[in-house]
Design a protein around this nucleic acid. Structure first.
Lengths: 149, 149
DNA sequence: TTAAATTATTTGCATTTTGCAACTATATAC
DNA sequence: GTATATAGTTGCAAAATGCAAATAATTTAA
């Protein structure tokens, strides 16, 4: 069988395309990084800057500036944590939540379109496989969590 | 079941980490984009600049400069096409080929480590699923080929 | 309880990456 | 042979990056 890496290279490249300028939402153009930040804030519970930056593997200084621009765009809010005033808690504004939902729908539409080329059994198998893969990657301290050496 | 997008978001992020500063090869630090370019030149037959840039979804001007730096690093060669002297044919130098091989081995080692957390049946299923997914994405004119609107 | 060390975040650069518009050079059409 | 199209390069100017240093709040330890 072919090289395993080859399969993954093709897959990740295609998803790269899928994500790339994925998103015009609410009349705004959302970059790939921005969409990831919004996604992550939406999925974590009262996350701090660090937590989100860490989850995305972005340098904290770069992240700080990216958050600033999202705040200017009125998509993200930054509130000092009353328990530790060094920390800022990130959250989505109403507009940000709307953008998050819109992007989510767009992505799901893309993905469903892709899955429409499979039968139900194949679709089930593929989804289960991706879950397996995610779990395996989570177990692998080797890689995949935060950029390693 | 969870949102389909969620599965993919997690997966692609993890692979992003995997790829990120993936590669030190032959004493050189190879960036993610550089490794993709090298990969693509290695896999296409006598490709032109356009062809590789297109395959990677990179702007041709950016690509042109990236190739220049790879040439300086002595990994890539650029030879005018005798049939059409506007065109340049890209190829790997011996050093470039070595880097390509090294990266390939590294990535395969990572991937095997990940798969070591699965049994043989799961591994087979996952690989088959990714193949299915790649085929489905190839069929989907919707996305996944070259950046679309 | 206060000085020292630690942690979260921001700013100051300096470098790199990006992409549009304009350019050069070759090839094709009429 | 002039006009048009195509492949690739360069000139900006904007954006993204990341290290080092600054700021501000918290914890540790004497």
């Amino acid at each position: 069988m072919e090289n395993i890496r080859e399969l993954f290279q093709i897959m990740t490249r295609r998803f790269g395309f899928l994500n790339k300028n994925c998103c015009t939402a609410g009349g705004l153009d959302i970059s790939l990084i921005q969409s990831h930040i919004i996604y992550e804030i939406d999925h974590q519970f009262k996350p701090s800057m660090q937590q989100v930056a860490e989850a995305l593997g972005t340098d904290i200084t770069t992240f700080s500036r990216q958050v600033q621009s999202l705040i200017k765009m009125n998509l993200v809010k930054k509130v000092p944590d009353p328990d530790d005033r060094r920390v800022y808690i990130l959250s989505l504004t109403v507009g940000g939540k709307f953008v998050a939902t819109t992007i989510d729908q767009q992505m799901n539409a893309y993905l469903n379109e892709i899955f429409s080329h499979m039968n139900d059994f194949e679709k089930e198998t593929v989804l289960r496989s991706i879950k397996l893969l995610n779990e395996a990657m989570a177990k692998s301290g080797f890689c995949c969590t935060t950029p390693m050496g």
